[in-house]
C-alpha cells in the first residue's frame, strides 16, 4: 500500500533503475532443435550494441506483458555487435520469447554474474563438458579460446544430448570436428538409426581425454546430476576439484542480489555465481534441497 499525501510527495523520474531493462530489437531467430532456438538482438537504432560481457555471464530477458527470465549469453564475447542467446522452450516466458518475430523488442538487463575463468585457463589444457542446452552458456568460452588459440594448450569438448535431434549448434560442431586443434566428442543418450556416434551419458566420455590432467581446467555445464557425475569422472581422470568449474541454476527474479530467490546458503547465485569452482560448492551439492 502506497502512502499518498499531496504535500509530502516527492516527484521521482524513475522508480527503480536496476529493474529497468534496455530495449533491443530482434534481428534474427534461428531454429536449433524442436524446442530450442537462437535469437540475435541489436539496438533499435541499428547502432552496434557494443555489449560487453564475459563468457558464462547471463542476462535477464524481459518480454512485455509476460515476464523476465535469466538466460546465458551464447554469442561471441569479442564480436559484440549483437547479443546472442540460445533458449530452450520450457514454460511461459520462454514460449513467449519464441512467439516474438524479427523486428519486435525484448528488454535486457545485464550482463550479470560470474564467468568461466578463461584467464586462469591460459597455458592449460581446457576440457569442456556440456549437456543439452548447457552448451549455450559455455559457447562464449569456446569462442574466446579459439580467438586466442595460441594461449591455450589442448582443447577438448565433450557434449551430450538426449537424442541426435536434440543436438544444438550442429553446423558449428561439424565445422569444429574438422579442426585438428580441437578434440570433440559428441554422445547421445538414445540413438536413432542414422546415428553413427557415441551412445551413453556424457561423463562416460571423460575416458577419451588424453591431455595431462595436472595441467588442465574444466568447464562443466548441464543438469546438476550430470555435473556431479562429470566431476567424479574428471577426478578419476586425475583432476582436482579446484580446477573444475560448474554453472549452477536456481530460480531468479532480479539477477542483482535483491530478491532473495537464488540463495544458496550464503551465496547469491546471480551475483557470486552462476559459475563456481566445484571445490567451493561440493558440500552443498551433496546436501538436499538447499
Amino acid at each position: 500500500m502506497m502512502l499518498q499525501s499531496n504535500n509530502t510527495a516527492i516527484k521521482t523520474e524513475l522508480t527503480n533503475e536496476p529493474f529497468v531493462p534496455v530495449m533491443y530489437e530482434i534481428k534474427r531467430i534461428q531454429r536449433e532443435t524442436e524446442d530450442t532456438f537462437t535469437i540475435d538482438l541489436i539496438l533499435p537504432d541499428k547502432k552496434k550494441t557494443n555489449f560487453r560481457f564475459k563468457p558464462g555471464q547471463f542476462n535477464s530477458m524481459f518480454v512485455h506483458g509476460c515476464g523476465e527470465v535469466p538466460i546465458s549469453i551464447s554469442g561471441n564475447p569479442i564480436k559484440n555487435e549483437k547479443i546472442v542467446h540460445t533458449i530452450r522452450v520450457v514454460g511461459t516466458v520462454t514460449r513467449a520469447i519464441r512467439r516474438l518475430k524479427v523486428g519486435e523488442y525484448i528488454g535486457i538487463r545485464g550482463p550479470f554474474g560470474s564467468h568461466w575463468p578463461v584467464e586462469k585457463a591460459v597455458d592449460k589444457n581446457v576440457i569442456i563438458i556440456a549437456g543439452g542446452i548447457g552448451l549455450a552458456p559455455i559457447r562464449p568460452a569456446v569462442y574466446h579460446i579459439l580467438e586466442h588459440r595460441e594461449k591455450y594448450k589442448d582443447l577438448s569438448i565433450l557434449y551430450g544430448a538426449r537424442t541426435p535431434d536434440d543436438i544444438i549448434f550442429k553446423k558449428e560442431l561439424e565445422s569444429i570436428r574438422g579442426r585438428f586443434d580441437i578434440d570433440l566428442h559428441v554422445t547421445v543418450d538414445r540413438a536413432d538409426n542414422k546415428w553413427m556416434g557415441n551412445v551413453g551419458v556424457v561423463p562416460t566420455l571423460a575416458k577419451r581425454i588424453t591431455s595431462d590432467p595436472s595441467n588442465s581446467i574444466a568447464f562443466v555445464c548441464g543438469p546438476e546430476i550430470m555435473m556431479r557425475y562429470s566431476a567424479v569422472a574428471l577426478q578419476q581422470y586425475g583432476m582436482s576439484l579446484q580446477d573444475i568449474y560448474i554453472s549452477l541454476e536456481r530460480n531468479m527474479k532480479c539477477g542483482i542480489g535483491l530478491c532473495g530467490h537464488c540463495q544458496y546458503t550464503g551465496k547469491f547465485i546471480c551475483k557470486d555465481g552462476p559459475v563456481y569452482s566445484y571445490e567451493t560448492v561440493k558440500d552443498l551439492l551433496k546436501t538436499r534441497e538447499i
Partner: peptide, 9 residues
C-alpha cells in the same frame, strides 16, 4: 512490436 519503457513511478 516496439516496446518503450514509461518512466512513471
Amino acid at each position: 512490436g516496439k516496446v518503450t519503457v514509461i518512466k512513471s513511478s
